[in-house]
Simulated scan of single mutants.
Amino acid sequence: MGITRMSDLKRSKTGARSIGWRKKRNHAKGRPAAATRIGAQKIHFVRVRGGNYKRRALRLDQGTFAWASENATRKVRIMSVVYHPSDNDLVRTNTLTKGSIVTVETGPFKEWFAKAKGKPLGNEKYEAPKNITDDMRKSWLKHKDDAPVESDLMSEFSSGRLLAVISSRPGQCGRADGYILEGEELKFYQEAIQKKKKSG
């Protein structure tokens, strides 16, 4: 049968061998990993137990990412995989999995910020729209006294690439969605990426 998900024949956490009291079962069989890469979208439907279907993403080039502190979510293009906590080979091959640290484009978030708050994000030039609606004015007044965007994240916007983490499972649901890194989490991964560059 090959790939199996059953743990009957594995060692225990302490390293003790387990005695195989039965052979492999059909209900416990597994499939090869999806190994989702960055590229033009390509999704396969896989029939699974109970007549359900999994969406096996083989290629993805965009996803929906959330900017949590601003309560904003936008569909953006995924540029590359820059760090993975489990395997450097997944970085080399640009493989998308849950937990992958990726760089995404900044454009859609900049557009949203300018429209919602009536000011540019960073030092970029800002041209106010010609047709300003009442809703836009209300939004600008509402966000007038908001705290500024933190400096670490601002430098990410200036570079044109944001660090984000994938929180969905592309090989199971056919989507690469996640959130933008901020605060302590952003600092941690920035240091980890720099450390990896120096050692490499």
Rank of each mutant, 00 (worst) to 15 (best):
L60Q: 02
A114D: 10
I43K: 03
A66E: 02
F109D: 00
Y53A: 03
K23C: 10
T97E: 12
K98A: 13
S86W: 08
E124G: 08
T64W: 02
H44Y: 12
L96W: 01
R47P: 03
T36N: 03
I3A: 05
R74I: 10
I19C: 04
S86R: 09
S168K: 07
I19M: 06
K197Y: 03
F157I: 05
K75P: 07
M136D: 05
S155R: 13
T4R: 04
D87M: 03
A66R: 02
D152C: 06
A33F: 08
G2Q: 09
A176Y: 06
G30H: 02
S155I: 12
P170D: 05
D8Y: 12
G118I: 01
G51P: 09
R37Q: 08
S86M: 11
A57T: 12
F109E: 00
E105S: 12
S158I: 01
L90V: 06
G122N: 11
Q172T: 13
A34S: 15
E184P: 04
I101L: 03
R137F: 03
G63A: 06
E111N: 14
Y83T: 06
Y53K: 05
H44V: 09
A72V: 15
V149W: 00
R22K: 13
L96G: 02
L58V: 10
H84W: 14
S159N: 11
K98N: 13
D89H: 14
A116G: 02
V165S: 06
Q41C: 13
K117D: 04
A114N: 05
V81G: 07
M79P: 08
G30V: 03
E111S: 13
D8P: 07
T95F: 04
L60R: 02
R55C: 10
R37P: 00
K110E: 07
W21D: 11
L181I: 00
L181A: 00
V46Q: 13
I193K: 04
T64P: 02
G20T: 07
K13M: 05
S158A: 12
D177Q: 10
A35M: 15
Q190M: 10
S151G: 04
V102G: 00
D61N: 13
E191Q: 12
Q62S: 14
R11F: 13
G171D: 01
E150K: 04
I166C: 03
K98D: 09
A128H: 06
D145W: 05
F113G: 00
R11I: 05
Q41L: 07
K144H: 15
I19H: 10
L121F: 07
L60D: 01
A57N: 06
S139C: 12
Y83L: 09
S69D: 13
R49W: 05
R92C: 09
S167P: 06
E127A: 07
A147H: 15
V104F: 01
G20S: 07
K29R: 13
P85A: 02
A114V: 03
E191H: 11
R55M: 11
I43V: 15
R11Y: 14
M79V: 15
K13D: 06
A164Y: 01
F65S: 02
A33L: 07
A28P: 05
L163N: 00
A116F: 09
T73L: 08
K119E: 03
S18A: 09
I193N: 01
T103H: 04
E105C: 06
M136R: 14
C173W: 01
K42Q: 15
F113E: 00
N94Y: 02
Y83E: 07
R92H: 08
S100C: 06
E184M: 10
L153G: 01
F45D: 15
E111I: 10
